[in-house]
Simulated assay, not measured.
Amino acid sequence: MSIFSRIKDLMGNKVDTFDGTEDLEKMVEQNLQDLNRELGKVKAELASVLADEQRLKRELIECQEGIEKMERYSVKSLDEGNEGDARTFQERKSVLAEKLSDLQAAIQFASSKSEQLKPIHDQLIANIKELESIKRSGF
């Protein structure tokens, strides 16, 4: 999680520490560049996590539908007296149920990660705006 520690370091740099230095403009510009670079990384990571989360949700729905389908097939096979097929469908249902559990865990992880990234994203934007405001004010 080096990106988190780097962002924490950048966000920890307060403009107040620059007062009185001759290179204030350079320091502000460098911090702006660093923050914008980190913002780009966070945006890319957040977009990737959100895309993964959506993909996983679609897979989850497909898996749930598969489980329901296998249950219907199993019941139908039993009604027709075909216990071998019913067992096969129950086994497939069992495999899908395990996959469902894995998908739920993966969705929870992706959701948690996106919830961690959103405040960082927002804080970076706020810090960039603050530095840009200082830069526009002419120091």
Rank of each mutant, 00 (worst) to 15 (best):
M1V: 07
I3A: 04
F4Y: 10
S5N: 06
R6P: 01
R6K: 14
I7W: 03
L10F: 10
L10S: 15
M11W: 04
M11H: 09
K14S: 14
D16M: 15
T17C: 14
T17Y: 14
D23C: 03
D23F: 00
L24Y: 06
K26C: 05
K26L: 07
K26S: 11
M27N: 15
V28C: 03
V28S: 04
V28N: 07
E29Y: 05
Q30F: 12
N31R: 15
Q33D: 09
Q33W: 02
Q33F: 03
Q33E: 09
D34F: 06
D34C: 10
N36Y: 00
R37P: 00
R37D: 05
G40Q: 04
V42A: 02
K43D: 04
K43I: 02
K43G: 01
L50H: 03
A51M: 04
E53S: 11
Q54H: 13
Q54P: 06
R55V: 07
R58S: 13
R58C: 04
L60D: 10
I61Y: 09
I61C: 06
I67L: 06
I67M: 10
I67A: 06
E68D: 12
M70D: 07
E71Q: 12
S74C: 02
S74G: 05
S74T: 03
V75P: 00
V75G: 01
N82C: 00
G84N: 12
A86F: 02
R87H: 09
T88S: 13
Q90W: 03
Q90M: 09
E91N: 14
R92E: 09
R92N: 11
L96E: 02
L96R: 05
A97M: 10
E98N: 08
E98Q: 08
D102S: 10
Q104W: 02
I107E: 11
Q108L: 06
Q108T: 11
S111W: 05
S111I: 02
S111H: 13
K113I: 03
K113G: 03
K113L: 12
S114I: 01
K118M: 05
H121T: 07
D122F: 04
I125P: 01
I125F: 02
A126R: 11
A126M: 04
N127D: 00
I128F: 04
L131G: 01
L131A: 01
E132T: 11
S133K: 14
S137W: 07
G138V: 08
G138R: 11
F139Q: 14
